[in-house]
Design a protein around this nucleic acid. Structure first.
Length: 303
DNA sequence: AATGATCACAACCGCCGTGGC
DNA sequence: TGCCACGGCGGTTGTGATCAT
């Protein structure tokens, strides 16, 4: 792939002249405008930095410099020290996504697929966190993989979501790889020590859309919820599926350890409820966004 | 063979959280 | 307390490659 190399960012020029800031700032309604009017402090001298694809020479320069000196904790100053006419951010990205040692390139394994699906279902598009569970993969890699392949794979499954009963054959031949059949439904989500995830789930979380019945039970290692699958009575003959939140197993090498093996769906009526839920997530990430915030509690716990 | 559509992915962009001052 | 610079992040873009017609 060849990139058009430019020294002047045409889009930036257009943006600064004609467009308002695209997103509201969390600091308050006026903040972006203040920064906008003040002029955003550039991270580098854009008139004098090269853009576009990295040449092998640039790669060598960057790699040799970092091998010898490290990043020094200052990416902005690094390109000048390394003799590169690049933005510090660009150097950082190039290093993290391409030059860093022990990076894995190429096809994703089925196991990696499963982990990505599992974590996306649990935490949404927190690519850096997902990447932390896949050694050698970058968040950019996973994001691209998800957007170009995995999402379509899953949407392929859910494209027949109108159906209300189990089909004879999965729509996707790889369906069983992502959703291996088990005797009951399990969705393993991270919990923190003895603290279950459930209290962290706000009303907006898609799992909350499912009608619960019964009370939460704990056998010491697993917390289970009964889920009403739409029957008229809350007990008795009603077919109930359990949602099991696997216990959080702690941290190891800065990685979250889950007790569960993945996002697994039994081929029952409820499967399609979840396919719908997942489909909604895929179509609109805003559905899960509020719930994603709950993951911060896990981070807080870690700290 | 030509053309348009789609895919894949590296790179860019701007927002946001954080820490230093 | 507020400002600022920086690093990190997720979303988006741009372009060559590949596929379909």
């Amino acid at each position: 792939m060849l990139w058009k190399s430019t020294s002047v960012d045409e889009k930036d020029v257009r943006h600064s002249r004609d467009e308002k800031p695209r997103r509201k700032s969390a600091r308050g309604e006026g903040w972006s405008w203040v920064r906008y009017l003040m002029g955003r402090a550039p991270c580098c001298d854009k008139a004098n930095v090269k853009k576009g694809p990295w040449s092998p020479e640039e790669d060598t320069k960057l790699k040799e410099f970092i091998d010898k000196n490290g990043t020094g904790g200052n990416w902005i100053a690094l390109p000048q020290k390394a003799g590169l006419k690049r933005c510090g951010k660009s150097c950082r990205l190039r290093w993290l996504n391409y030059l860093r040692p022990n990076l894995k390139h190429g096809e994703f394994s089925e196991e990696e697929d499963r982990i990505i699906c599992n974590l996306f279902a649990a935490i949404g598009s927190r690519w850096s966190i997902i990447a932390s569970q896949l050694p050698g993969r970058t968040d950019n890699d996973i994001k691209n993989y998800w957007n170009t392949k995995l999402k379509k794979k899953l949407l392929g499954i859910t494209s027949t979501s109108q159906r209300k009963t189990k089909p004879q054959q999965p729509a996707d031949p790889d369906h069983h790889l992502l959703f291996p059949s088990i005797t009951h439904q399990e969705i393993h989500l991270p919990t923190v020590g003895s603290q279950s995830l459930a209290p962290l789930i706000p009303d907006q979380h898609p799992l909350q859309h499912l009608p619960y019945h019964g009370t939460r039970e704990s056998n010491g290692s697993m917390i289970t919820f009964g889920i009403d699958q739409g029957c008229s009575s809350s007990e008795g003959n009603c077919s109930t599926t359990q949602l099991n939140y696997g216990n959080y197993g702690g941290m190891k090498d800065d990685r979250l350890i889950f007790s569960g093996g993945g996002f697994e769906i039994e081929s029952t009526e409820l499967e399609y409820n979840y396919e719908e839920e997942l489909k909604q997530l895929l179509i609109s990430n805003t559905t899960i966004s509020p719930w994603i915030l709950s993951l911060n509690s896990i981070t807080d716990y870690k700290n």
